[in-house]
Design a protein around this nucleic acid. Structure first.
Length: 469
DNA sequence: CTATGGCACGGATT
DNA sequence: AATCCGTGCCATAG
């Protein structure tokens, strides 16, 4: 068996590759490390010729090593850009303090669980099976903020349930952990949260009235008018507003996990992790690409030697097929890991400032550029990046696709401009200011970015930016 | 009259 | 081929 660890696949048609290898590798490439885990488990259980050795081997040089990463390979790579290596998920070294928390207490990293599952778990025990079906449907129809898309009546018709029952289930869900989830709008959500707080005895006398009747004025911080109409002092109104801002969150999904861009969830355990060099402060970044579970995946050698001794031809074929399949799987798995490694290495090499710095340090790049440079097909990059997440040294876990976000840096610039403004700037003015930062965008586009950032328009933004609506 | 947001078009990206 | 993104045009609110 020739070794394949250095194998790369070419997009050129100069040599017809066996399709099975290629497609299988691509399938594996699409999977996140969590999905790969289950894939691997079934493959191993179905195929006796495949084994997961306990010994720890370096995926690069294949030497037996005491722990990841392979010291020899690290030394070899030292000095030339980031150190990137493939690591099994279970075996982690480099547990600096800040790094350790990823795997223990930090609840962003518990097992993957979507918002829907999270809520369903809470309400399920106390409802009937019919109600449960309704709950499932409702939870499947939440938008990215955690609001209900459909009208309750629609749901009732669709599921042929009574409107009363649907409403009851919604009420129940609204009281579950991200309080206010499945509300129909911001207002309903806030009121629900306030209600729950009141039941706990924590409340502000003015809060309810303010929310229900003076939301508009509150949003534009027009405290004077409110104070006059309520017949109380401005100070009281301000304290009530402060109470609201501190204790209530307009978007239920956001309080649950801060990354609003993924309503589908599964953004918890990263596929890639970048950490600072624990030995040298300014040393090369250390990057782990997580692969299948633990240990060293290989074809079981005792099975192989046994097969050659089998007499019965039918039996022999059967086992030979197992062997072949195992070899294929191992090969594809290593190709997959190798491709991931190369891609991630290039990304990290190109974006050190973003990884260590902030959003505005992101250098725009496209998948095509990477594909050219790595001599891979652009769809290969797409697969490798899709649905994957990366943990940055500062603890944030973001989608790998963020690196290909054309406008992230500009949005960051918009944010800083507006934060530093003395008087509220119109979109036009912001657009003009952006030229100083070497960004040329239309006024309309600034408006889009602004709303993406959740910043109110200039006329409602007299002084500061409350993060509401 | 000005600033903004909705709609939709076209070009780039995947 | 499908999707995403920036932008222009136009209606509307203040």
């Amino acid at each position: 068996m020739p070794t394949i660890i250095t194998g790369q696949f070419q997009s050129t048609s100069q040599r017809q590759q066996p399709a099975a290898h290629l497609t299988r590798t691509m399938q594996l490439l699409e999977k996140t490390c969590n999905e790969l885990d289950t894939e691997l488990a079934t493959e191993i259980s179905e195929n006796p010729a495949l084994e997961m050795a306990e010994e720890c081997r370096c995926p690069d040089c294949k030497q037996i090593i005491p722990s990841y990463p392979c010291q020899a390979c690290m030394n070899r790579l030292n000095g030339t850009g980031p150190i990137v290596y493939v690591a099994p998920r279970a075996n982690r070294t480099y547990s600096t303090d800040e790094h350790e928390e990823y795997y223990s207490t930090d609840n962003r990293l518990r097992d993957p669980e979507t918002l829907s599952e999270h809520v369903l778990k809470q309400v399920a025990p106390s409802i009937s099976s019919k109600e449960r079906k309704i709950a499932e449907h409702i939870l499947a129809r939440l938008d990215e903020h955690g609001f209900l898309i459909d009208h309750p009546a629609e749901i009732a018709t669709y599921l042929r349930a009574s409107l009363k029952m649907v409403k009851a289930v919604i009420e129940l869900i609204k009281r579950a952990d991200p309080i206010g989830v499945a509300s129909q709008d911001v207002m309903e959500c806030l009121l629900t949260q306030l209600d729950t707080l009141e039941q706990d005895g924590k409340t502000h006398p003015l809060a309810h009235n303010l929310l229900a009747n003076f939301w508009e004025q509150l949003a534009r911080r027009d405290f004077d008018t409110v104070a006059r109409k309520c017949n109380v002092s401005v100070q009281t109104v301000k304290s009530a507003a402060k109470f609201i801002k501190r204790n209530l969150s307009p978007y239920p999904a956001q309080s649950h996990w801060n990354n609003a861009s993924n309503a589908t969830g599964r953004y918890f355990r990263p596929d890639v992790e970048v950490i600072k060099n624990p030995h040298k402060e300014d040393g090369p970044l250390i990057v782990q690409v997580f692969s299948a579970a633990r240990g060293w995946l290989r074809v079981n050698s005792s099975v192989r030697s046994m097969v050659s001794k089998i007499e019965d031809p039918a039996k022999k074929d059967e086992w030979a097929a197992y062997l072949e399949r195992a070899a294929l799987f191992v090969k594809c798995m290593r190709q997959r890991d190798n491709a991931m490694k190369r891609i991630v290495k290039l990304i990290v090499t190109r974006q050190p400032k973003f990884i260590l710095g902030t959003d505005k340090d992101l250098i725009p790049m496209t998948r095509v550029e990477l594909a050219d440079q790595l001599e891979l097909h652009e769809s290969t990059i797409s697969r490798a990046v899709a649905n994957k997440t990366i943990a940055l040294p500062n603890g944030r876990i973001i989608p790998l696709s963020t690196f290909f976000d054309r406008s992230l840096a500009i949005r960051a610039a918009v944010l800083t401009i507006i934060e530093q403004e003395s008087t509220a700037m119109t979109d036009e003015q912001v657009a003009h200011k952006l030229i100083d930062y070497d960004y040329k965008v239309a006024r309309r586009t600034v408006a889009k970015y602004r709303s993406m950032l959740g910043i109110l328009p200039a006329n409602l933004r007299a002084r500061q930016l409350p993060s509401a609506v």
